[in-house]
Nucleic acid binder design. Structure first.
Lengths: 244, 244
DNA sequence: CGAGGGTTTGAATTAGATCAACTCTCGTGG
DNA sequence: CCACGAGAGTTGATCTAATTCAAACCCTCG
């Protein structure tokens, strides 16, 4: 599971606990890329790394927001619930993604691990007190927030105005993009269930399933198993995401 | 229209052009509240204030993003279009709101004035170069972005999982909140058309209209005219926004 | 007074939801 | 080794919330 095991000369575990950041797999991709050597040491003293089992809750909507997280490995779903149980997944996050931009004093959504996941935990107060010393970090977070806002608006367009197949095509291509596998022939990983996809796209699982069959019958994808999709016609899919 | 006209001892127009910020109606409410006296002067040298007629375009999705804006007065809609004309309004903005958090090098959405509007324009490059000198400004923007992300997630829940009436009730209460008029008996201003509301809520104008009649017949609101709504039962409306 | 937005209301249509049955894995244990 | 059950996914039949199509009904403004 952990990629640490295959590193040729991984640091001994003691060192890894004291200073996990230097050996972090996702450092260059995450917000930590904004940090220079000595700053990294400061951060290293604050963070703690921990595994989260599949289906486990990281935090719940309404909880006091006293930590933010970096995902080291795995996949996480963020979601909001209505009192009667209707669920809207507001995002899927993966290795190197940051959780905790959208919060005041309490979390605005719940977070659960989809698969076995490893996260890096930052106590929020301590982190914020570092902003003054490390303006690059704050700048990096602002950029990140900017990107998430753009993604959020794309999702609003999807939820408000796209048809079921268009939603599914958009979802697959966005996921493909995120995985750097958006060309015909590439295989996209789908760690989440159909129910998750439905709750992300504002549909039911039946409609999602029918969407997959449609795309399959139209020769746009293949589905070797329910947790992966092969792009048979990336251009055709992309056309669907912006169809008219 | 302009509240400047009724200020008892408004600065002469020359001074207002050179240093509009000091006399700005929305200064304390906008991101400029993060600025201290001398900083305000620096900013004042950069900004330009200008009126935008109802229906006029501020910028279009895809344009080079070389300015951000503060709304001084009026109302603005942000939206995205699909090639075939389907439109999703991603937000309505009002006096003191900031436009331009969600962008890379190009705007991710278009912006149009709904009513007669006055905006304050910040050249983007110059503004960003000030971040280093004014960390409080960047911090303020990050907070703002955080709030917008929360709002965006609420909107996803609305678009993905709420019924037509629930969407309308949520919209009315959110608008009422923004206007500080969320109690029974209060009147909410609706500067936008039914078409705008429909494109914001992911519905058609007919469904929005039927929604208003429903709320009216259920005694939750009154609609003296199409551009205002009186809250007859704020609690009932709130219940609808989180119904189950 | 007449034209043209914007809005409302009614009737017919449909995309997607709901209800229901069946399949496919996969893990457990006799 | 096979029976069994549970969870996830697919497929079909029916239903419904919202859309589409159509017709009035405002207003305001020239």
């Amino acid at each position: 599971m952990s990629r640490f095991q295959i590193l040729p000369d991984a640091a001994p575990s003691q060192s890894a606990e004291l200073m996990p950041c230097a050996a972090c797999d996702v450092r260059e991709l995450s917000i930590c890329s904004a940090l220079r050597g000595p700053e990294l040491d400061r951060i290293a003293a604050l963070v703690s790394r921990s595994p989260v089992g599949a289906g486990q809750t990281l935090f719940q909507e309404g909880d006091e927001a006293n930590a933010v997280y970096n995902i080291i490995e795995g996949a996480v779903r963020l979601f909001k619930l209505l009192p009667d149980g209707r669920r809207q997944i507001t995002g899927f996050l993966f290795a190197s993604d940051f959780i905790g931009l959208a919060l005041k004093d309490r979390y605005a959504y719940s977070a659960e691990a989809i698969t076995g996941t490893v996260v890096c935990r930052f106590p929020r107060v301590k982190l914020e007190s570092l902003f003054e010393e490390m303006p690059r970090l704050e700048n990096r977070l602002l950029r990140q927030a900017s990107n998430e806002l753009i993604a959020a608006q794309d999702q609003m367009l999807l939820l408000g105005r796209k048809t079921a197949v268009e939603r599914l095509a958009s979802f697959l291509m966005a996921l493909a993009q995120r995985q750097g596998r958006a060309k015909t022939g590439d295989t996209v990983d789908l760690p989440m269930t159909r129910t998750d996809i439905a709750d992300y796209l504002g549909l039911t699982i039946e409609t999602v399933s029918r969407g997959f069959t449609r795309l399959r019958k139209d020769g746009l994808i293949e589905t070797p198993d329910s947790h992966s999709a092969v792009l048979r016609d990336a251009e055709g899919l992309r056309a669907l995401t912006e169809s008219g």
